[in-house]
Each structure stands twice: as structure tokens, then as C-alpha cells.
Simulated scan of single mutants.
Amino acid sequence: MKLYYAPGSCSLSPHIALREAGLTFDLIRVDTRTHTFGDGQDYYAVNELGYVPVLQLDSGEVFREGAVLVQYIADQAPATGLAPANGTLERYRLQEWLTFLSSEIHKGFIPLFYGAAAEGYFDIARSKLLERFQWIDTQLAGRDFLMGERFTIADCYLFALIGWAKADWMTSVFRLDLDLTGLDNLAAWHRRVMARPAVQAALQAEGLQAEPA
């Protein structure tokens, strides 16, 4: 398998998942400004939409949507518990989390990336995004991870996204104006995730500086 990634982007989610699953893969860095990789190869030939992540299987099949490809990764190593079994209620709960993170958190950051052009909507988007993180904080009360005691691919996704926020305990190449101060459950969750060997390995491989929890 090949994972096409850009450091600190949402591709950090499947990167961590691959390491947690113990799967063998090639890590291929993409320059998202020029849409090239390797020795100047055209990334649009891999993904015509131009964004990361992309997971390319040995067969040549390509997955380009993060919430789907992390489930594929988890299903290759079911003993790890990264995802509950297909058809179970817990699997649907996991998919509920992945959908929420994709639609409410991931897409919620977009106006902040383009704040200068968003004008008045910038503050509205930031406030709405903070409300979503506050809700996640309440859901983590009494839980080690999003799904309870077990680390899953939903935690991989949230870890990648939360790095874009502004907080002393974050690690990212991005740093946006979203202050998560006071969300103690979220901060404790972040420390637990940061301490995982697969997470540390992924951060090191992407050249991201791991800050103290």
C-alpha cells in the first residue's frame, strides 16, 4: 500500500491508523502547492481532485476519502480493535463519529483557512467550531477515547484535525485562531493519544515537532 500525505494535514489520521494496525506501507509526501510528488510527478494522475490523503492498494485501487480509507485500514487488522466489526451497533456509532468529524469539524475549519475572504462569516464559523469542540469535551467525560475505553480510527481523525487549533498542547504545521483553553477532557484525551507509540512514530515521520503533553 501507498499513503500519499502532506505533513500536518488530515492525512495524519490514516498515517497513524496504518501504524496502529501494524501494516506495511510506503509513505509518499505530496507538495499540495504544486500538486507534485517524488521527482516532480503529477499528483493529479493519482487523485484528480488534488487533495490528500490517498491510499493506493497494491492492486492499483485508490481510496481518497479519509473516513472511508481509515475504515479499510482498520478492517485489515481487526484484532487491533481500531474499528468494531461490520454490522454491529458499535460500528454504526463509529461511523457516526467519523461523519461528525468530517462534516462538523473538518469542514468547519475551512473558513478559518480562508478567513481573509470570508469577511463576517469568519467569526461565525470560529464560534460554531468552538461549540462543536466543547460538545466533544462533554462526550469525553469519563472516557479515555471517543468510543470509550478503546482507541479507534475516530481518535486518529480527531487527533489530526485538532492539531489545526490554537492550544499550547497542540502539534501542527498549522495554527489557527481557535482557543481550546478550559476543555480539560479534550486536553487529557490529547495527552493519552500523544503518548501512543504509533502516534509518536507518525509525527516523527512527518517531521512534526511533538510538544510536551
Rank of each mutant, 00 (worst) to 15 (best):
S127T: 10
V173L: 11
A187K: 15
E90V: 12
I162D: 07
T34C: 12
G66C: 13
H35D: 09
D31V: 14
E119K: 14
H15T: 08
P53K: 09
Q41P: 04
L57V: 00
E119M: 14
L178A: 07
A160H: 10
L57S: 12
A45Y: 05
E119P: 05
V54S: 03
F100T: 12
A167E: 11
Q56Y: 03
I110M: 10
Q204N: 05
F100P: 05
L140G: 02
S127M: 12
L158P: 04
G163Y: 05
V46H: 03
A201N: 01
Y44I: 03
G40N: 07
L158G: 01
L57W: 00
L101N: 04
G60S: 09
Q139T: 05
L178Y: 12
R126F: 10
D184A: 15
A202C: 07
R33D: 13
L186Y: 08
A202Y: 01
E48G: 11
F100H: 10
M147G: 04
L27I: 01
T88W: 03
L23M: 09
L94R: 05
A187G: 03
E104R: 00
R175G: 11
I16F: 05
D26Y: 07
S13Y: 02
G115W: 04
V173T: 14
M147N: 09
A187F: 14
G120L: 11
L3E: 06
D31Q: 12
S59D: 05
V199A: 05
R91C: 05
T99G: 13
A85V: 01
G8V: 06
Q95V: 05
Q204H: 10
A198G: 09
Q41I: 07
L101Y: 04
R19N: 12
F159L: 13
G163I: 06
P111Y: 03
Q134Y: 06
V173E: 11
L57C: 07
I110N: 12
V173F: 10
L27D: 13
F25M: 05
N185F: 15
F133K: 08
Q209W: 02
A205T: 09
L98P: 08
G108E: 02
L69P: 00
W135S: 07
G66Y: 04
I124K: 14
D137R: 00
Q56V: 02
D123P: 02
W164H: 13
D168R: 14
T34M: 12
N185E: 14
Y5R: 09
W189Y: 08
G207A: 07
L158K: 10
A165C: 15
V52R: 02
T32Q: 10
Y157F: 13
G115P: 15
Y5W: 10
C10W: 01
Q41T: 00
A167Y: 11
G66I: 00
A202W: 06
E211C: 08
A83V: 02
V52C: 08
F63R: 00
M170Q: 14
P7A: 09
R143V: 11
M194N: 05
P53L: 09
Y44N: 04
R196Q: 08
V30A: 07
Q134M: 15
V54P: 04
Q56C: 02
L18W: 03
T138I: 03
L146W: 02
C10I: 07
E206Q: 14
D26V: 08
Q71H: 15
F113K: 09
R91F: 03
R64S: 02
H35C: 06
